[in-house]
Design a protein around this nucleic acid. Structure first.
Ligand SMILES: [Zn+2]
Ligand SMILES: [Zn+2]
Ligand SMILES: [Zn+2]
Ligand SMILES: [Zn+2]
Lengths: 150, 150
DNA sequence: ATGCTAGTTGATACTGTGTCTCATATGGAA
DNA sequence: TTCCATATGAGACACAGTATCAACTAGCAT
């Protein structure tokens, strides 16, 4: 169960763009590469810094547009950090949630399965008809927990 | 099971301030009154408009500080709307979650109970040690669903 | 009641995020 | 290679949230 390499993930991004009939532009490829190289969650600002540092700066508007596009294709997902900041994580397309390490930022995809019944129960109790939900789990990953600090 | 009136909720806010050893200032009382009068979720900007409209304007910084204070006392809670905006909802102090109507903004408190076991399972599977989580449910409340539109 | 003081307020300035516009550049099809 | 619909990015903008600091006030001591 080796995690896919950054190259493979970059290719997946590019392939997804083409499949969706979206142009594979240089800035989008650069963004894909930078996103794929990221370990945990990241903000739009961080991605811009990455681009700068990699010697291929991308305009601010383009970064936001690329991230929105990736999100609309299900390649990344927006998460709201506990401090209120907005970030993104790489992820699979099917609906699921994220466990995010508050120390290193690493995120693990969590199945939505366990929530289904709980959600139905809430609908029965409240009369609400749910159309969307957001579940974000924060804590320490095994590595960070083992290393003791914080 | 009548919902508490705005007056009662205002008093609860003021009482909570005093109990916590916080000063009961005029702007804080005004903010408490305005928050208590709100039906669903609201933003800091909306609360400022409310204050303006009520003829007792409150400085922007003070609104943010009052809301932070209320949140630290568990009187309100920050929620992240699906559109990425930050808002607040009135709520009880014990940990729980919110079902929020995307049409009228009304929110219903949801018990955390159903999540406990699911959370433990995730910890077992991922090795994460969870320290916090956020669950927000979005949909249409019974009234809005009944009224048909959207 | 009066004064005192630590805590609070709010005008202002500032940072940072995200959006909009539009002239220029370019991907990809023909 | 040509062409044009689409994408880019500089710069201006709108807005959220924070920092500063002189003026004010709640609550306590007298
Ligand atoms: Zn994911
Ligand atoms: Zn970690
Ligand atoms: Zn609540
Ligand atoms: Zn509703």
């Amino acid at each position: 169960m080796t995690a896919p390499s950054a190259d493979v993930r970059t290719d997946a991004f590019v392939a997804a763009l083409a499949r969706a009939g979206q142009r594979v532009t240089l800035p989008r490829q650069a963004a894909a590469r930078l996103v794929a190289a990221r370990i945990g969650h990241f903000t739009a600002a961080q991605l811009m810094e990455d681009a700068e540092a990699a010697g291929e700066p991308i305009g601010r508007a383009t970064v936001f547009r690329a991230l929105d596009l990736f999100a609309s294709l299900g390649l990344v997902e927006r998460v709201d950090l506990p401090d209120g900041n907005h970030a993104f994580v790489v992820c699979r397309a099917v609906h699921h949630h994220h466990a995010i390490c508050t120390r290193c930022g690493r995120s693990v995809d969590i199945s939505d399965a366990s929530l289904g019944e709980a959600l139905a129960a809430v609908e029965r109790q409240t009369g609400f008809r749910m159309t969307a939900h957001r579940l974000e789990l924060f804590g320490l990953c095994a590595e960070c927990a083992a290393s003791g600090v914080r």
